[in-house]
Amino acid sequence: MEKNRESGVVMETKVREILDRYPEGRTENLIPVLQDIQETDGYLSEESVLEVSRHLKMPASKIYGVATFYNQFRFAPLGKYHVQICCGTACHVLGASTVLEEIEKNIGVKSGETTKDGLFSMEVVACIGACGLAPVISINGNFHAKVTGESIKEILDNYRNQE
């Protein structure tokens, strides 16, 4: 608990640093501000959105509305293993949606979410330029090629077993 609180403080100062780079009350900077925060924190926490709301003088509901409009923002911290599944054309044609379904079932969360134990997070991404490997997923930057509904189970289990 104590530790969490500490990391909260650290995070807030980082958000502060980001906000200091943008003038107060200038709502047109919303997207870059959110991008910067996500870049540093990996996600948009409730506290950071509220901090942005105070700085830009913009209701939190509006910020949340804008942020959920774009796929790029997430509201849960990344899991220990961040699974990115490509849904570009090649992957789609070769069965990415079956893989996606299987991942959702296996870890129990949808794109943009993180498992309760913090082990996995998942994100659907547009073409990652590895069409030769389709359907492809990347876990913490490591690519897994020609994934199927069957093989994905094994891949995820391997990560689980490392714990």
Binding site: V49, P59, S61, F69
Partner: peptide, 20 residues
């Protein structure tokens, strides 16, 4: 007040509060 807004987009849009 502005406690509600459009959340998400397209066919998934709904009206909700901050962080739903």
């Amino acid at each position: 007040v502005a406690c509600i807004d459009f959340i998400d987009r397209g066919s998934k849009s709904f009206i909700g509060t901050a962080f739903d």
